[in-house]
Design a binder for these strands. Structure first.
Lengths: 383, 383
DNA sequence: AACCGTTGTTAAAACAGTTTACCATTTTTG
DNA sequence: CAAAAATGGTAAACTGTTTTAACAACGGTT
């Protein structure tokens, strides 16, 4: 028995907040039953029927529904009352067919086995879902399996009018099919990355700033031999981190060494292996900057189980600030990425783009460093 | 820099498999460009236009699209060729409006802060997404926030024709609004739980079997003082585990003690705290059965940091078998829940229910125990 | 030769809304 | 007080499909 059902959740507020919902759902039941009683067969109540019962035209009901200013107050009330009485709900297939928008947004995830269970994606998704809900949009999720792209289903999303726009999470420059969207001017925003050619709309965290914050911290603590576990060099934002790492060293008068750079594949195990390789290459290393928290955790696990104390011997800094890691031992100093906010922003901008309010989306969100226990002063400087 | 983008993924197969997609998307580009060249303004090509160009009626094109046997081979080919040439894609809003189904299924998650980043939900979701894709269905995700339910949006999902059916993950008997679905005969399947009144369709893992497997293991290892960290007593499947735990003890001639039962709230920290409480109540306890892996991990963390060796002093068994935990130290013995398969089955059954092929869904999937390092023989029995 | 059953196709009627052009009333303006 | 403008509402066209009933054309029976 898995994951906390509502009421046993840590934030019991959401559990309490749920209580009224039961009454609410009862109320709805009552309302629907009333409708059923009054009209014997309320099956399939449509706008025409409402218009007839209210003694107005179909156009009038439609305008009431859309709060058109051309309808007088009295008519509005009369029609609205009938709508409520009959329990009428406009069919959104018909609305979208005749109207301009579907009010649906797709989220595309990469074809990783655990894409749906990922803390990083999950945090962004939460932001997207919350904002989409507020904007009255529904969310469609797709995993961009090779087959899916091969059959052109990503374009079908628009062309068959499933959605108005797409948010793409976890992709990088190698996924060139993303350019198909831009080529057809279909609204699409790349989330937490960008393309080198800058033709795609994007919204991402300021990885340069984040890397700078992490490096400033380590340098101020007196570290000179600072290694880095990177990943996914095909991702521009990932390259930002490596470049900033290197230039920070140079700016501090330190000569970067190729021996200090290892690919950790963004995974737990990759991070552990990277730590092993780094220390075997250069035992002087006293700090490691990791491209994400998972790799940082792997590195810490390797270090602590192989006679290196963290942070006494080696300091470790991560990237992401994913949940449930604040409790790790030692807890992880990491660059906090505003992923929830990023999701919110991405969704907001996408809708603006769909509505034609903006032509181009290119936003960058600031990061900040969260100081915890995995970093400490350079050995030689401690009193 | 988060979660592995495709190509740096551990299963590099999916990365390789992705390569062809780029060519595929290019091909599509080419095809669309051709269409554009041939017809100047291919904007909004619809079935009427295809019919005109092909010299047949609209009905004929529709029947070709739906592979009706009433269309002759020659006509079929002629029309299909025109469809391809014009790059025509049927508008699915119109299709659904006129037809019976939307071909969309909703997944409803509880309003937990990290519902989208949860390993347990994620695994089920993967199964659902894969099967939905194969069945030609799209997936809509909703979080059942209190406000959402209060406004009756869960019913709107059907009534405004957003979806044909709903899968509900992570809910229990306290969420009585779920009964609204059954009351209206809207297709809905409760995933990995059931309701006491048995009025709701469900698909869940065999928690009794799982608990039995875990208990058999511990009893065979010689343990007599076996505690249990449960959670969410309002969940019938969670109760299954507690009941089986108790009856197993009785069957083994052991008198269950209330001191052996603590609520761990399904969380990491809850599990740690529960372990503390248990051992303070009864230091004799030599084994702990936990209602999920998170709590088991928390318990192990507490034990190992407080002078109890796992499994030498205390054995721990979890429930779920979530990924990335096989590498924990010590690795966790746990009851494997077939969550991916559960998702597949749930989706499959929901579609059958939608199509009227079945009246009722009530399926249970078997579990199995995964033996790892967190369990061992009772101290006194070791040689 | 009149009748019947296939076979393949079509016109027209759903499906359920939005939007536009137009038409009466009123109200305001010159 | 007539003309112009504003107000409130409506009929009809439109969105893009599926489905049904009807209908030719044709070969095969009596």
């Amino acid at each position: 028995m898995p994951t906390p059902p509502l009421n046993s959740s840590p934030e019991s507020k959401s559990a309490d907040a749920f209580a009224p919902s039961r009454e609410a759902s009862k109320e709805i039941t009552v309302r629907f039953n009333n409708a059923a009683v009054e009209e014997k067969v309320p099956e399939k109540v449509n706008i025409r029927e409402v218009a007839r019962q209210a003694g107005v035209s179909v156009a009038t009901v439609s305008m009431v529904l859309n709060a058109s200013p051309r309808i007088s107050r009295s008519t509005h009330i009369k029609v609205q009352r009938m709508i409520d009485k009959m329990g009428y709900r406009p069919n959104r297939l018909a609305q979208s067919l005749s109207g301009r928008y579907t009010q649906v947004v797709a989220v595309m995830l990469p074809p990783l086995r655990h894409a749906f269970a990922d803390a990083y994606f999950g945090e962004i998704l939460s932001g997207i879902a919350d904002r989409a809900g507020k904007l009255g949009h529904k969310l469609l999720i797709e995993q961009a399996k090779p087959q899916f792209v091969k059959e052109g289903k990503h374009l079908e999303l628009y062309e068959r009018r499933f959605v108005d726009g797409v948010l793409c999470l976890g992709f990088n420059e190698k996924h060139s099919f993303l350019s198909d969207f831009a080529a057809r001017r279909y609204p699409m925003i790349l989330v937490d990355n960008r393309f080198g050619d800058n033709l795609l709309d994007y919204v991402h965290c300021d990885y340069r700033l984040g890397a700078q914050q992490a490096m400033n911290c380590l340098l101020q603590l007196g570290h000179r031999s600072i290694a880095m576990v990177y990943a996914a060099p095909e991702s521009p934002t990932a390259r930002d981190v490596v470049e900033t790492y290197t230039s920070s060293l140079v700016a501090a008068g330190i000569t970067p060494s190729e021996h200090w750079l290892v690919d950790g594949c963004f995974t737990d195990e990759g991070g552990a292996e990277a730590a092993r390789v780094l220390l075997s290459r250069d035992p002087q290393i006293s700090a490691i900057l990791c491209g994400n928290d998972k790799m940082a955790l792997g590195a810490i696990r390797y270090l602590t189980t192989h006679g290196h104390r963290v942070p006494d011997d080696v300091s470790v800094v991560g990237f992401d600030d994913i949940q449930h890691l604040a409790y790790a031992n030692p807890s992880l100093t990491t660059v906090h990425l505003p992923l929830y906010e990023l999701g919110v922003l991405a969704c907001e901008k996408l809708v603006e783009r769909i509505r034609g309010k903006v032509e181009r989306v290119a936003e960058v969100l600031p990061t900040h460093l969260v100081l915890r226990e995995s970093t400490g002063m350079m050995r030689s400087l401690r009193s």
